[in-house]
Design a protein around this nucleic acid. Sequence first.
DNA 1: CTGATAGTGAACCATCAGGTTCAGTATCGC
DNA 2: GCGATACTGAACCTGATGGTTCACTATCAG
Lengths: 111, 111
Amino acid sequence: MVHYQPVDRTFGALADPTRRVVLERLGRGSATISELAEPSGMTLTGMKKHVRVLEEAQLVVTVKVGRTRLCHLGPRRLDDVREWVDIYRQMVNEQLDRFGELLDRTKGEPH
Amino acid sequence: MVHYQPVDRTFGALADPTRRVVLERLGRGSATISELAEPSGMTLTGMKKHVRVLEEAQLVVTVKVGRTRLCHLGPRRLDDVREWVDIYRQMVNEQLDRFGELLDRTKGEPH
DNA sequence: CTGATAGTGAACCATCAGGTTCAGTATCGC
DNA sequence: GCGATACTGAACCTGATGGTTCACTATCAG
């Protein structure tokens, strides 16, 4: 563990397929914990945990409405991911040429 | 667990700060396991594991050269992330208006 | 050949993550 | 008020993850 960074949470939150499904569902409109849990047959408690993770990553915002909790997509943190991916992609492009050269060199060598 | 998807590995690999540091390092040029491990003081075995994760996510490619293993950035999988982020971002934009309306509505309600 | 170097794999350990059950609490509908 | 509903939190279980040590193999330099 190098050091804590918000982007950790973002990537971590996105790494779970259940949570990506939740985000996709919320992309079609707000939903309660029950509504999010129902399709997968997960318990409310389990889904609540996922929603919490998404909330901490600021990918989702929730509002308690009566006895239900309405969940919506949140606006933030995606910039972190986007920025990182862009930087990374740039690095890849810069490296690819050298990598190709290296492959060509090592190809000729005995292993 | 909904179902396995390659993008899981990608996000999972990116979720660890140590691994992102490795990717950034490789962005400045190829490196051996030792060279990757040295800055953080991690054991070679530990770093090897991280490199393996990055390899499985196809974010990194390695070549055994003599007794060293050269690691380079890999070209793939980033498209998965990029695509997902773009879709997600589009959803967010579509939702933001409705979310704003909802906030306005609930604001007036007694809690 | 020989010692030092670089990596590897197995085994182990501690912590975290995803999930459950169960026992609340708060709210809704009547 | 009262039962049903929706969520919440604590406690617990299991498997994965991040890391180590240790013994071993392969290669390099001389």
